[in-house]
Design a binder for these strands. Structure first.
Length: 569
RNA sequence: GGCGGUGUAGCUCAGGGGUUAGAGCAGUGGCUUCAUAAGCCACGUGUCGGGGGUUCAAAUCCCUCCACCGCUACCA
């Protein structure tokens, strides 16, 4: 049994997150973590906001609020979204507030420098005197040096598609203020990625199992690797250690250098809060830890090359990622999610009208695991109505209501002579069932959702075959035994449901009259003949209430209309 | 431009060199009535994007073409 250190990409604290982020990097991690816990594994789930970088300074200045206030606002807003989705981290922090973050980041810089993995280079860059900052390529607009297009961005020309060098562009302007930037020389530190690759990172990557999208992308990247600058000229970020700055001032670590270190500093923060400040080493410096990063595909270069290179460069005993199950992108109703264009689903508003638990399930069932996928309101309705309500919710209802009406709301007895027959009936004769928890452990989320529903079908088939309503008059004892067996299956349904929809699972658990929690550690992985029943005959059941209310067509139509209306304004 | 992905039943997708290509949803017919007009059973259709090649055999491998999409790391 390994220790599992699970991370989700640190959300950038300059805007809200949407369903795409949730299903890309957070929900899968949460599902994986819950499945691990249910199997009794030791898990730590780490996340927090990424709060440095030039985009944040620009955003804050635009809003006329101090940087710390700006990031705090988004940090809290984003956290509320996670809370709404029942995504539960063991630690949630932020790179600008975590007390351990700056020192940890500087330690990385110091060690990598000491080991010769950093290079110092002087280059010319465009500098905006008005905004007093060096301009990243995307903050430059100007004339394309290839085709003469006048509104090219500094990194790429939208017209001819050429990759641009801002220093060669005949005419440029700062995208923020519109003024013409000047050339200015500056010094920066570069992470020597080719050297790290050649000294072992390349082998590490080659020897590892990866999702196909990750392998293809990184494999290419490793062939043509350049040293990468890891410092910037700005006042917001982790400062380059003074004693290593070679007399330079105003240098901070590049946001992508310090952001992944957040996983480590947040772990330290968590350890300290537990009263065991050294505990973090067990998670980051012990080969028994399995480190898994959940990210969207846009983060692949950083989590599969840059950050591993940094960890590798730190040397023993630091561990490297075990797996990076990157997802593709999630679209919305035929288009890309775009907060600025209004093509998005405001989470708080949505949660006021629809069920967060069912939403989790639908996001899992439509997750962009192997290719881009999308949220469609009609599909959400189908998942909720035809799968969750009809197959699973109604299953619980038909069993529990029957017992409520005819058996005083108690678990009937299963006479010894019927146990084997009924075990065989439901476990062997009503169709194949699978283990959703195992699928979640294997990070096959769509499959997990599918298997869960299939397991509900098995019990529906069982009930139809055994027809307890017919037995009611002819053989009440057998009727009770049939239903008690169905109840046992519902106990398993609640367990299987727990990672996907923890609150619904708990509700079902209580309807079954059970104390404790539906997500408690499972004593065995799957039901098996003669060894899967846990209920006590005569135990009082809870009150059956429909778990999944149907969603009306009109509600879906209204959402689609509202989405279109938002996009127009 | 480079790299990569996708293209399989009306829809969403799974599968992946070898018996008659699968699931769910939607549709049709039947059964049932415990249940959220729920459940169960049965049924249909597919040139597996086009073309070429390898092979005893390809949806599955190779080449090419077409369509759509993503990424292209000094913006997170």
């Amino acid at each position: 049994m390994a220790r599992h250190l699970v991370t989700s990409a640190l959300p950038y604290a300059n805007g809200p997150i949407h369903f795409g982020h949730v299903t890309g990097a957070y929900l899968p991690a949460d599902l994986h973590v819950r499945a691990l816990r249910q199997r009794g594994e030791e898990v730590l789930y780490v996340c927090g906001a990424d709060e440095h970088g030039v985009a944040i300074t620009i955003g804050a200045e635009k809003d006329k609020v101090p940087y710390p206030e700006y990031v705090a606002r988004w940090r809290d807003e984003i956290k509320q979204t996670f809370d709404a989705f029942d995504i539960r981290f063991d630690v949630w922090s932020g790179t600008s507030i975590c007390p351990e973050h700056a020192a940890t980041s500087q330690e990385f810089f110091r060690v990598l420098d000491g080991k010769g993995y950093l290079q110092v280079k002087q280059t010319e860059q465009l500098y905006c005197e008005h905004d007093r900052m060096f301009l990243a390529d995307r903050y430059i607009v100007g004339t394309c040096h290839e085709c003469g297009h006048e509104e090219a961005r500094g990194d790429e020309c939208p017209k001819c598609g050429q990759w641009l060098d801002p220093l060669r562009m005949p005419k440029t302007a700062c995208k923020v203020c519109g003024n013409a930037p000047v050339r200015r020389s500056t010094t920066h530190w570069y992470l020597d990625l080719p050297k790290l690759r050649d000294e072992g990172l390349g082998r590490w990557f080659a020897d590892h199992a990866w999702k196909p999208n990750v392998r293809a992308f990184v494999g290419n990247m490793l062939e043509d690797l350049q040293p990468r600058p890891i410092t910037r000229d700005m006042g917001w970020g982790v400062p380059v250690p003074v004693d290593l700055a070679r007399g330079e001032s105003g240098k901070v670590l590049y946001v992508w250098f310090d952001a992944p270190i957040g996983y480590i500093s947040f772990t330290k923060e968590w350890a300290r809060s537990q009263g065991r400040p050294d505990e973090w080493r067990r998670w980051w410096q012990d080969a028994g830890t399995r480190l898994v990063h959940f990210i969207g595909k846009d983060n692949i270069p950083f989590h599969c090359v840059v950050f591993p290179a940094m960890l590798f460069g730190m040397g023993e005993p630091w561990i490297l990622p075990t797996d990076v199950p990157a997802n593709e992108f999630y679209n919305l109703q035929g288009g890309k999610f775009s907060t600025s264009k209004g093509w998005t689903v405001p989470v708080a508003e949505f949660m006021g009208k629809f069920d967060a638990q069912a939403t989790r399930f639908h996001l899992a069932a439509s997750m962009p695991e192997n290719s881009d996928s999308e949220w469609r309101f009609e599909d959400f309705q189908t998942t909720n109505n035809s799968l969750l309500a009809d197959v699973v919710g109604n299953l619980a209802q038909r069993v529990l209501r029957f017992l409520e009406k005819n058996f005083d709301g108690r678990v009937p007895e299963v006479p010894a002579h019927l146990v084997e027959e009924l075990d065989r009936a439901i476990l062997e004769e009503c169709g194949a069932f699978g283990d959703p928890i195992e699928e979640l452990l294997q990070t096959r989320f769509r499959r997990a959702a599918e298997v869960f529903i299939q397991n509900g079908r098995v019990a529906n088939v069982y009930i139809d075959r055994l027809a307890p309503w017919a037995l009611k008059k002819t053989d009440p004892v057998r009727c009770g035994a049939v239903l008690a067996t169905a109840c046992e299956w519902l106990v398993w349904m609640a367990r299987w449901m727990a990672p996907f929809m923890p609150k619904k699972a708990q509700a079902l658990w209580e309807q079954l009259g059970l104390a404790g929690r539906a997500d408690e550690v499972m004593a065995q992985a799957m039901p098996s003949m003669g060894a899967w029943r846990t209920l006590t005959a005569g135990a009082k059941l809870g009150t059956p209430i429909g778990l999944f209310p149907k969603i009306e067509d009109a509600a879906i139509a209204a959402e689609i209309e509202a989405l279109k209306a938002r996009a127009r304004t």
